[in-house]
């Protein structure tokens, strides 16, 4: 039978919330938007309280992994298929001249979409959520070594995609056929 440690009372939860609530909120907003993000945060801290025996002292990874599972469930729900990204895209298509911010976000999203999903998530966790490979390993359930390998690969691929988007190769370079002389 599990028993709650004596210091895992409401004060503990408040300290946990004050220490990590903003990062959990930012994590959720990045993935599902502001409105649904607060539902995710609520779910995470309900879980933390319910499972306070299991929450490690170094709790950020546990909290973000719980948030990640809640986010995944959010996207699995058939009534919530429109992702934040799709919403942004829809909105940008609806306006005649998308802002520079929208264009940057679309470019970033398209490059992240082109990466293997776990590699893209490693990059998001590094750049946006500012986690170390060891913390990423906890969130994704992989080894720190695998997190470092994926991070290196993701950085390299993303930078290559980004470079290609800035300097697209002319068609003649990719063509296997010799160029015809111009007359």
């Amino acid at each position: 039978m599990r028993h709650s440690p004596p210091n895992r009372d409401r004060g503990w939860l408040e300290r946990l919330f004050d220490q990590h609530g903003l990062r959990v909120r930012a994590f959720a907003v990045r993935r599902v938007g502001a409105d649904a993000g607060d539902d995710i945060v609520s779910e995470v801290f309900i879980s933390a309280w319910r499972r306070r025996v299991d929450v490690p002292d170094d709790a950020l990874g546990w909290l973000l992994q719980t948030a990640r599972h809640a986010v995944l469930h959010h996207f699995r729900s058939s009534s919530r298929q429109a992702t934040l990204r799709e919403t942004v895209r829809w909105n940008s298509h609806a306006t005649e001249s998308p802002s520079a911010e929208d264009e940057t976000r679309l470019l970033v999203d398209s490059i992240l979409d082109a990466l293997p999903p776990t590699d893209a998530e490693v990059l998001r966790l590094t750049v946006w959520d500012q986690l170390t490979p060891s913390e990423i390993a906890v969130v994704l359930g992989i080894t720190p070594g695998a997190a470092r390998t994926r991070l290196m690969r993701a950085r390299q691929s993303a930078q290559e995609f980004y470079g290609a988007s800035l300097h697209p190769e002319p068609p003649s370079v990719r063509s296997a056929e010799p160029c015809s002389p111009q007359h």
Binding site: R25, R105, V108
Partner: peptide, 8 residues
């Protein structure tokens, strides 16, 4: 660019 477009 990612940091610039960070939605969080």
């Amino acid at each position: 660019q990612m940091r610039t477009s960070d939605p969080g």
